[in-house]
Simulated scan of single mutants.
Amino acid sequence: MKNFKSIALALVAFVSFATTAQTTKKVNAAKSTINWVGKKVTGSHEGTIALKEGALIYKGKKVVGGNFTVDMTTINTTDLDGKSKANLDGHLKSDDFFGVEKYPSATLVFKSIGEKGNGVYAVTGDLTIKGKTESIKFDLTVTGKTASTTLKVDRTKYDIKYGSGSFFSDLGDKTINDEFELTVKLAL
């Protein structure tokens, strides 16, 4: 009887540990999307950028962490074509903006997560662009085999000041907003 109790106790401890252990679920980068929108006084531009790799970390069914790498060399404008598209893509990849030759990737690492309910999490993470790391906050919604978010990034925090009215005067209608928006859909 004593052995039976010991075995039962060990089984309960093992099941408790197994249900609270962390698991990492890799994101399907090829099926995930990142869309961007950048605005200026006279309008806006939009496009895509590719996720290189990523993962969400779970404890049971709750998201407790995550890390992602974006391939900055894939910046692609989708609202233009021909020479205009090539010029903007090239400018965004240049040192005026993302400097992709020196900084070919950007990363996001979740630092803290608060559960808001119904699969929505309040995330604080470290976003690194052009070698500079800044804290960023956003909500992440996880449903079934997808996770999604929309976040705004202040490019000037990453030393991307080209056309910024916060740093240059007399830009007039050539002023570019400091913030750009990312809409992310992750395939899990």
Rank of each mutant, 00 (worst) to 15 (best):
F138Q: 02
G60A: 02
L127V: 03
K174T: 03
F138W: 03
D79F: 04
M1D: 14
V184D: 00
S44R: 12
F110V: 12
I75K: 04
I7G: 05
L127S: 02
K85L: 11
L188H: 02
F110D: 05
D173M: 01
K85P: 10
F4K: 13
Y162K: 07
L11E: 09
S164G: 10
S16Q: 01
E181S: 14
I113P: 09
D159I: 10
L88C: 11
A10K: 06
S148C: 05
V63Y: 00
T133N: 01
T150Y: 09
G65E: 04
G47R: 09
D178N: 10
T133V: 03
L140S: 00
L182C: 02
V153I: 13
G82W: 05
K102Q: 12
M72P: 01
T175K: 15
G90A: 05
A13P: 08
L151D: 07
F17S: 11
F180H: 01
V70H: 02
D89V: 05
G114E: 13
N87V: 11
V184F: 01
K157M: 13
V63S: 01
Y162A: 03
N67F: 06
G99E: 10
P104K: 11
K39H: 09
L51H: 08
L182F: 08
S112G: 03
K40T: 06
E53Q: 14
I129Y: 08
I160A: 05
S105G: 09
L151Q: 09
F17A: 15
